[in-house]
Design a protein around this nucleic acid. Structure first.
Length: 227
DNA sequence: GGTAAGATCAGC
DNA sequence: CTGATCTTACCA
């Protein structure tokens, strides 16, 4: 049983939320499920590594909004990366989803990730932020969606319930209408979670801060972590 | 209106 | 290690 995470889960300090998210599940309504093994916290106007450092620019504005929404940005002219907005409204922070262990819907992930006829190992499906986003079909069109189930998630068969992909089969049935959400199955991270410096930031622009949280020794992570 | 750098990945 | 590929934000 995997209980969807509510908005209050994301409303705290992004660094605490990030650490707590390791071991949680990312769930797509079509049955794709993966356990997060690596995330990073990005803060607001005090964090030079954050997109919100320059204030609420059009791209970063969503980071200043309420917690529990998806922030998707386009990276290096070809990749999408997925974040969860954290903290109280008016402050900016988010958690970047960097890597996960595929648990369900692996076929759909492989399909979403296959660019040619190349065969991808399970290990390569979600190992890295752009790979993870691609495996779950996350693109800019999903920027700003609510990752938290709306109240009264029960039936969801109203007059307007017809649109949207994959209405209500699979594990997603409990959530109502989100296109994507996070859940807790109680299993935890399966090992110690360690904090390391964030990946990919130029050292000259941002000081090294240990805001990357990763399961020690996990081979599902985008790069090895001490363990 | 021009430009440099970027929360990356895949192929040599 | 390097190329791909384009948006964002900053500067003139």
């Amino acid at each position: 049983m995997a209980a969807p995470l509510g908005r209050e889960f994301f409303a705290g300090d992004a660094r605490c939320v990030a650490r707590a998210l390791v071991g949680k599940l990312l769930v797509h309504p079509d049955g794709r499920v993966a356990r997060l093994v690596e995330v990073e916290a990005y803060m607001g106007t005090d964090d030079p590594g954050s997109h919100a450092f320059r204030g609420p620019t059009p791209r970063a504005a969503i980071m200043f909004g309420p917690a529990g929404y998806l922030y998707v940005y386009f990276s290096y002219g070809m990749h999408w990366c997925a974040n969860v907005v954290c903290g109280p409204e008016g402050t900016a922070s988010a958690v970047l989803l960097r890597a996960a262990e595929p648990l369900g819907g692996v076929g759909a992930m492989r399909l979403a990730r296959s660019h040619g006829q190349k065969v991808l190992r399970d290990l390569d499906l979600c190992r890295g932020p752009a790979r993870l986003a691609e495996a779950f079909g996350i693109t800019g069109e999903m920027n700003g969606i609510d990752l938290v189930a709306s109240a009264g998630a029960g039936a969801g068969n109203g007059p307007g319930a017809g649109n949207g992909p994959g209405a209500g089969n699979g594990p997603g049935a409990g959530n109502g209408r989100s296109l994507l959400w996070l859940a807790d199955d109680g299993a935890g991270a399966g090992g110690p979670v360690v904090a390391t410096p964030r990946v990919g930031l130029s050292a000259s622009r941002a000081p090294e801060l240990p805001w990357r949280y990763v399961v020690a020794g996990s081979s599902w992570a985008s790069r090895p972590a001490p363990g």
